[in-house]
Design a protein around this nucleic acid. Structure first.
Lengths: 276, 276
DNA sequence: GGCTGTGAAATTGTTCACAGCC
DNA sequence: GGCTGTGAACAATTTCACAGCC
């Protein structure tokens, strides 16, 4: 799931499966909430419910970390918080830089969820000279020229990229050259990075597209015909969005590129809605 | 991967595996870029590189959609753009609402990636009366009181939640009651929703935690001792972050809760760095 | 009696490798 | 000759179900 040229079996890391690692932060969040309410112990069933998974999976996950529970009783909340934190590496301080202080970058800088884990925003970096020195989230924005210096002086190994897509690859190269080995990428581009560098992607529109896929299927189940949306009326005509949607959006090509008739698409080839 | 009480085999949807669905938006993005450069055809190898996957996987993925390529030649870009768009349901207009117009909500409202797919931000909603009427991304923020009305009048079936964690569950209930059946949740909470409602989560700090996990392992490989970070000096002491990190963060509990000696953690139990 | 820890089974996802077509 | 489409092998993940301990 992490990108990066992961050629090694990926989970050579130390036995803990990737899927489990991806859930540890979920468990940690649920446990932290319990800890704040001074709950001393939880059963796998309760904790699983709080984390939104099923209990068998949770127990299996924890079994990769060690035997931290007590049969007949459950798990000690504080102890487990600590063990998971340690496993995730959150018992140490992780300075991060955020590059690209637009709307999203500023939102990230202000996001409390970082600081409350072991992450410390060490610097905000932007290419716009007009931004330099302006305070965002109580911290002056610094110019890209100083990127390498900032990385090195702060011992940063994790970088967050929130630049426009066009700048992301170059920014990632500079980050990596300066010593960063993990990147969280919000720009909608595939970064190509050398071996040994981890990249994780968050793409907001991808998530929406996945929802749309399922949403469409739901509509198809209700009635036989693939009806438009769930709600009723309106739909203010003109398929292209209000503001400046690039007109290229979705145009049904004549038919198949070459050759004549083929088997139609899996569900019948008729476009449900077709812009005129 | 989608949350929601997915009890059905999940991929009863129409044969297309979830993992494939999750990659379609990636392919679509790469194809759109090619289309803009007027590239007529691509091979699975080229397209795979552009999308950041390997070609076997891409071909397998496409084979679930149908036989849209031409042996010896490759795929017709325009045709494939259309087929994937249709499969994802992007040939229709999807009005979405964003609830919670803080930093993140505003960033989402301004994010161009939505409009350029089939998504149209139909309304911005916030609970703060002071926000009401204020323009964000060229659109007046509306008050939560009108949530149900807005949903119904616009036929919205997809909602985006960018509220604080405490408000998220209640907002989701109101959205669902008003007709929303898919939710993209940015609040760091597990939403519990009825069957038939899809939830996808994006949690910024979770991604960072996963990176930290791998980062920690890397450090361990370099030298025998688990060295701090990659870079060199600094690390401005004081483990807790600058601003208002909740002091409860990470406290190593005395030892095991009950009983005496146990097998130590998988990697040896000594905490790498321990706040004094 | 209640609940964890874990082998074994079932399911899902990925990669290989090659037949089939242009 | 080049490249897609796909069965078959392989790998990862999830779920089951129950032995083992408190």
């Amino acid at each position: 799931m992490a990108t990066g040229r992961t050629h090694r079996p990926a989970t050579r890391s130390r036995g803990i499966p990737e899927a489990t690692v991806a859930r540890l932060p979920l468990y940690l969040r649920a446990l932290t909430a319990l800890s704040e309410r001074s709950v001393p112990t939880v059963s796998s069933e309760e904790l699983a419910a709080a984390a939104g998974v099923n209990s068998a999976k949770l127990r299996k996950d924890f079994s990769y970390l060690g035997s931290y529970g007590t049969r007949g009783v459950g798990y000690d909340v504080e102890y487990l918080v600590y063990q998971i934190s340690r496993e995730l590496g959150l018992t140490q301080d992780w300075p991060v830089v955020i590059v690209g202080i637009g709307n999203l970058g500023a939102a990230l800088a202000n996001y409390g969820g970082f600081a409350s884990r072991g992450f410390r925003v060490a610097a905000l970096i932007d290419a716009d000279p007009a931004m330099a020195g302006k305070p965002v989230a109580g911290m002056p924005v610094q110019h890209t020229d100083d990127l390498e210096k900032i990385i090195r002086e702060n011992g940063v190994s994790i970088g967050v990229i929130a630049t426009p897509a066009g700048a992301a690859q170059q920014v990632s190269e500079r980050l990596i050259a300066a010593g960063v080995t993990s990147i969280l990428n919000f720009a909608p581009t595939v970064l190509s990075v050398p071996d040994g560098v981890d990249v994780r992607k968050v793409d907001l529109s991808i998530e929406l597209q996945i929802l749309a896929f399922h949403e469409q299927r739901k509509a198809g189940e209700d009635s036989a015909a693939p009806a438009p949306a769930a709600g009723a009326a309106t739909a203010p005509s003109a398929a292209s969005a209000g503001a400046g949607a690039d007109a290229s959006a979705v145009v049904p090509p004549a038919a198949r590129p070459a050759s004549g008739a083929r088997k139609p698409g899996p569900e019948g080839d008729v476009p449900a809605v077709m812009p005129a």
